[in-house]
Amino acid sequence: MTFEMGPETRQVEAMWDVSTYNYRMDGTGIRLLTEGMKEKKLRGIRCGECGMVYMPGPSYCRKCFVDIDEVVEVKDTGTVMSYCVTMADVRGNPIEEFRISAMIQFDGADTWFVGTVTGVEWQDFKVGMRVKAVWVDEPAGSLSDIDRFEVITD
């Protein structure tokens, strides 16, 4: 290739100011979930047609295209669908303590959530393992009311 880039030209700045947006989102499912977490309960929404349980949920079923509003309880145990082990920070520098983040399908739900798993060596962690939520002592109705997950060993 004989192409040579021309001389460097100056840079000028411009903004995209996203602080000017008043974003609005469907909060039905997340409100239901976090309200329940005050009582250490996980709640999802079930589609009356296909039976799919969303947690948190949209207010309609993606597949059946109908409104959904049947509240169901979801267990705080689940199965690992996939996971990753964080070994570097956002800038790519290695970190001391590796962290396992797992995609967990909760028992009684068809959706998955990501959570941190502790108490297991990362080399021993596998897809398909069973995990259980470890709750904080005084839940406040927040997604952080579940502190972490641990592997169910029995």
Partner: peptide, 18 residues
């Protein structure tokens, strides 16, 4: 179920260098 709208502001402006 009560249909809930959540509102959010993202307190950022993204800078581009042209």
């Amino acid at each position: 179920l009560e249909r809930v709208v959540v509102e959010a502001q993202v307190p950022l402006d993204y800078t581009y260098n042209y």
